[in-house]
Design a protein around this nucleic acid. Structure first.
Length: 728
DNA sequence: TTGGGGGCAATTTTT
DNA sequence: TTGCCCCCAA
């Protein structure tokens, strides 16, 4: 394709095939060059294609590749985008990366300005949890009263929102938040002492740096003249800040996303970022990609019927030229075991008829649901795989070797040191470590310094000091590795640390550990061959930001089981969504964390993964936390369009009756307004708080007498108007 | 120091 | 019901 350039055509007209086969709106997006743009891309609307072609188009017609920055959320998305862009021509120098890796680059390049050492450590989730735990204890609290998980989550949320410990303390209203503020403060101090950052810090610190340091900002703006952000609906405060700061001078901010697929609010993503893009940039070009190339008409209509129930959205009219396809099916079963039998039985019989299990996916809201399904799949002999990240880089044997390298590069990294000090076992026990820690704390030095001191202090440490000496000698012997290329450094570390010997000794019991380590070595080799001048620090950063081993693409051997969250971005010919029950999907806990609109989006994401066949199931009884509980089918099932859906099982008749009146405006629509009293069959009396008449739907937000508040589409809400005097 | 057992909590998890 | 964490015993 890139050969076309050689003919000397006016590239704007031809673009080397860049503009071929695009629909009108796609073309509009691809050829956008200067100024802000918002691409609202419905599911299956060819977004990735648009983004990669637009990046290539930019490089060909507006600027140089190295002035283009494309930011994604996942490594997978970044890799995919890079591949697609590379397929469109030579675009060396273009930056295609995740938010986090962008921030690592920024922070390493400007480490002094960011007040970080050049070899700062990036702590992962589990390191971080350890440090939070330490912080709780250091703040004089008990981890029994303040669970590391809860505290961790709050600190993470604060960082995502760019709230400093000081600001957190100032805003803390209740006792819990005041306490979390103290821990947060200690936690930050620990990180700083260790020259470490967590994932959230990468974003937070980079955002602060670019926002406050004009020289750094100028440098970055000069390089990244065109900024593209994918999945903009998932940006949190820090990411939003970074994207907008980078684009501040040239204003070439091109964002793509879909508010209806925003499912990470609980991680700090703010759907308002995309909803208010046009307020941020009144001159923004807005393109809607509404044609779906993935699903059947009936699947699309069903998914649309669910999502129109939301108020927080940009209205889109999804359409497709695809066939009607078979009816979407809703199956109601007695219990979870029945559900598993029904779903798996069907998959088994379909696979006898030639349907490949690899074409089938089962989605659920929570991982716990997968167990029953797995058992049944096993029993039926249907091959399957669970897409749950037992992250490669989170494995013990992997973390162990990497921890050695981290300590070599950053001697202040106490967390990694503690991990390796007795790995493999060399007789340094908890007592000794505790003493070392106390000593370090008292002296205000690093743990490694304490270890070094201890190794020469026979009086205080007695026998332990000999063992510490052995460990210190090992580290010393490894010191020169920091300047070696990653693969060599890694191999030497495995040998010198004794890890290799240890793994080999246990090879019979745990052969996969050795294999994993071997895989790590080849990963390092691969990295090296792709980046000739790669340093150890760079490789370590890179590995820190990798989650799961990227799933091997291509042939899907068996049925895929995954959560609805994990399903985003994927597609399957045949999709089952199970456990569509109130409390599970939508997930409710009855507290402030409940977010019905997000649950609805999650359902929407799940449904729109299906290309041909979509089946949704619910059970009347389900074992929840060891006890049977009776379940009510999901409210999302009640709004599905009858003409496209086949209801199978218990309440099929009920559904039909209910549905017959829904979907139409109440005849006295003029009488409905803010303040109108209403009655709902399950929630009882309420009053309309907000009302919004859209082009096709009327949205209302209702506060019920019970205190429950919820948004509905009036046409589907099954609400009744109540006269004031009837209430009495 | 390592392990086993009791106690307790229990969504989703791009990096 | 399961799985993780912590404490205690050998």
């Amino acid at each position: 394709m890139s050969d076309d350039f050689a003919f000397g055509f006016n590239v704007t007209d031809d673009g080397g095939g860049l503009l071929e086969g695009l629909t009108e709106p796609q073309l509009e997006a691809v050829t956008h060059t200067e100024g802000p743009a918002l691409v609202l891309a419905g599911p299956g609307s060819g977004k990735t294609r648009v983004i990669s072609r637009r990046a290539a188009y930019l490089a060909a017609n507006a600027t140089k590749p190295w002035n283009v920055l494309a930011i994604t959320f996942t490594n997978k998305a970044a890799n995919e985008m890079r591949e697609r862009i590379d397929a469109l021509g030579d675009h060396r120098g273009m930056t295609v990366c995740t938010f986090h890796s962008l921030c690592v680059r920024i922070l390493r390049r400007h480490h002094a300005a960011a007040n970080l050492s050049p070899n700062f450590t990036i702590f992962d989730q589990s390191d971080r949890r350890q440090i939070v735990k330490q912080s709780i204890i250091a703040a004089g609290l008990s981890t029994a009263n303040f669970s590391p998980g809860m505290v961790d989550q709050r600190i993470s949320r604060a960082k995502n929102a760019m709230i400093s410990p000081q600001a957190y303390a100032d805003d803390a209203e209740d006792f819990i938040d005041q306490t979390v503020a103290r821990v947060y403060d200690v936690y930050e101090e620990l990180l700083a002492n260790m020259q470490g950052v967590d994932f959230d810090d990468l974003l937070f610190k980079a955002a602060v740096l670019v926002g406050t340091n004009d020289a750094v900002a100028a440098d970055l703006r000069d390089q990244y003249r065109y900024v593209l952000v994918d999945e903009y609906q998932d940006t949190n405060v820090a990411q939003y800040r970074i994207a907008n700061l980078l684009a501040k001078e040239h204003r070439n901010l091109f964002v793509t996303g879909d508010p209806d697929q925003s499912i990470y609010a609980w991680r700090g993503a703010d759907i308002q970022n995309i909803l208010s893009f046009e307020q941020d940039y009144p001159d923004a070009q807005v393109v809607r990609l509404e044609q779906n190339f993935r699903s059947t008409k009936r699947i699309l209509a069903s998914a649309d019927a669910v999502i129109v129930g939301n108020m927080q959205r940009k209205e889109k009219s999804l359409w497709t030229e695809n066939d009607d396809g078979p009816a979407v099916r809703v199956i109601e079963l007695e219990d979870a075991a029945d559900e598993a039998r029904a779903v798996v039985g069907e998959i088994a019989s379909l696979s006898k008829q030639g349907q490949s299990p690899g074409d089938v996916a089962i989605f659920y809201r929570i991982n716990a649901i997968s167990r029953t399904l797995e058992e049944e799949l096993l029993r039926a002999g249907v091959p399957y795989r669970i897409a749950r990240g037992t992250a490669f880089y989170a494995r013990k044997e992997i973390k162990d070797v990497l921890a050695y390298l981290r300590v070599l590069l950053n001697p202040a990294d106490d967390v990694s040191l503690e991990r390796i000090i007795n790995t493999p076992t060399r007789g340094i026990g908890k007592t000794t470590i505790d003493r070392l820690k106390a000593f370090a704390q008292q002296q205000g030095c690093s743990l490694l310094d304490a270890v070094k001191r201890g190794s020469t202090d026979k009086d205080t440490f007695k026998r332990a000091s000999t063992k510490l000496k052995v460990f210190v000698d090992i580290l010393d012997s490894m010191q020169s590795l920091v300047d070696q290329p990653p693969q060599l450094a890694l191999e030497q570390t495995l040998l010198l640390s004794g890890l290799m010997a240890d793994l080999k000794q246990n090879v019979d019991a745990e052969p996969e550990r050795l294999e994993n380590v071997a895989e790590l070595v080849s990963a390092a080799a691969e990295y090296q061959s792709a980046n000739a001048s790669a340093t150890l620090v760079e490789w370590l950063s890179y590995t820190s930001l990798l989650g799961d081993v990227d799933m091997v693409e291509g042939e899907r051997a068996g049925v895929t089981l995954m959560t609805l969250h994990a399903a985003k971005g994927l597609e399957f010919p045949c999709v089952y969504i199970v456990a569509a029950e109130e409390g599970i999907l939508p997930m409710t806990r009855g507290d402030a964390s409940d977010d019905l609109e997000e649950e609805r989006r999650l359902m929407f994401v799940g449904m729109t993964r299906a290309k041909q066949r979509l089946t949704i199931s619910s059970a009347a009884r389900r074992m929840v936390r060891g006890a049977f509980q009776s379940m009510r089918r999901s409210m999302f099932l009640d709004v599905l369009p009858e003409e496209h859906v086949e209801f199978i099982g218990a309440s099929a008749g009920v559904t039909r009756r209910r549905r017959s009146t829904a979907g139409e405006l109440p005849p006295d629509i003029e009488q409905w307004q803010v303040g109108t009293l209403v009655k709902h069959p399950t929630h009882g009396l309420g009053v309309i708080q907000e009302m919004f008449r859209g082009a096709r739907r009327t949205h209302v937000n209702i506060l019920f007498k019970s205190g429950h508040q919820q948004s509905w589409v009036l046409e589907f809400a099954n609400l009744e108007r109540v006269e004031f005097d009837e209430v009495g």
